[in-house]
């Protein structure tokens, strides 16, 4: 059995770092854990770092989309960061463009983007 993916609290945000290979069940578990955590901590933003992930197939793509949509319902923004070039190309060839997922190049950019988006929301 794979260990659950840890969810770290980073200021107002939650940070999830996905490791090299993830079993399907572990990915679904993350979906559960993350929604619970968002609700419990009233988090406004979620960063999912996939820079270690070598494969995003249609299943993993759906998990990422679902997490983003679920977080939205719970009033939190999700940014997926660090997608590798080869993974991005493969996803496109697979026919997936993850329209509901906001992406950023790396963790730092993801933080900037979240802060910016949340700031805009707060002001508006």
């Amino acid at each position: 059995m794979q260990n659950n993916i840890p969810i770290l609290k980073l200021g107002d945000f939650l940070l999830v770092t996905i490791q090299m290979d993830v079993h399907d069940r572990t990915a679904l578990q993350l979906q559960d854990d993350l929604t619970n955590e968002i609700s419990k901590r009233r988090s406004k933003g979620v960063l999912i770092d996939i820079s270690n992930l070598e494969v995003v197939d249609s299943f993993m793509g759906r998990v990422l989309s679902d997490i983003a949509s679920m977080a939205k319902v719970l009033d939190a923004e999700t940014v997926v960061v660090g997608m590798r070039p080869a993974v991005a190309m493969t996803l496109v060839e697979l026919g997936l463009s993850l329209p509901s997922v906001v992406t950023a190049l790396n963790l730092e950019r993801g933080m900037e983007l979240l802060t910016q988006r949340l700031g805009r929301k707060g002001n508006g």
């Binding site: 960061v81 997608m83 070039p85 991005a88 190309m89 996803l91 496109v92 060839e93 463009s97 993850l98 992406t103 950023a104 190049l105 950019r109 993801g110």
Partner: peptide
């Protein structure tokens, strides 16, 4: 189109 979509997926 593929390149543009892939670049966007990476956050650019």
């Amino acid at each position: 189109l593929k390149t543009v979509t892939a670049a966007e997926l990476m956050g650019a």
